[in-house]
Amino acid sequence: MSWPPDSAGGTPEPPAPRRRPHGWRGALGAVADHGFLIALAAVCLLPLYVMLIASFERAADFDGAALLPTLSPTFENYRTVWTELGFDRMFVNSAVLSLSAAAIATALAAGAAFGFTRLRFAGRGLLLAGVVATMAIPAIVVIVPLSVLMTDLGLVDRLPSAILAEAGLLLPFAIFLLHTYMRELPSELFEAAEVDGASRWRQFREIALPLARPALATTFLVSAIYAWNDLLIPLVLWQAEQLTTLMVGLALLGPSRAGTQNVPLLMAGVTISILPLAVAFAVARRAVVRGLVEGGER
């Protein structure tokens, strides 16, 4: 048993260089490889490239498409969407939804994962299988009763509705991720603590949580990304204008404004919606990638 587990999903290592045939055939092969990958990378990056350059165009000068950066870039679009189209408020709403749902999911999952790993009780295996199965249930399948339930509870258009729904849908994935990590912690540590007289709660707080910190970070981060990116739940449960999230805002504004001279504005808005993800990814690439690989589409 290796510990700490380093293969949780396996963070890809850079491809090790292989010896390729020398001479002109090898050189030709290398050129072909690079050509293929450059073409593919271009296809992947171009849409985001045109998004970025359009976001710096002046709306008045924009004629429907921009393939090259403008010579007179402006931040005006960012200022406008932020202050006049309400992206400032949407940003806050998205952040509230994303961070609180991730916090709730991570906190509850930590307790449940500890229970699953450290306690032997009847029905444990069945419950765990249920958790794994629930990971595969998408939001759309439960959205109908969920919206009715939230209406009955009087929670629609109030903060807890989307936050609880998002946390509940993320929870199985969070439990699974933390469980796979915690089960690799050496059981002797907990036995030692037990002999030392520590309660379960103390074992959880002082031993399990500090040791699981990397997995907790991954779980929180990936949960936050999913919640930030989700459209359906806030669209249905947070319909009030003051609760609009970035994704809902984009979904409402996009179709009515694309293809018009409002495109630069819209692209500025999209850029704002992606920015926190880019930051999270830049800061914690390994944790994010590991969590995404483990969780799949949650």
Partner: peptide, 16 residues
């Protein structure tokens, strides 16, 4: 890179 942004963000970009 394309995997990271939300589907909603990507969809709006592709509208354009």
């Amino acid at each position: 890179v394309p995997f990271l942004p939300a589907v909603a963000s990507i969809a709006v970009v592709f509208l354009y």
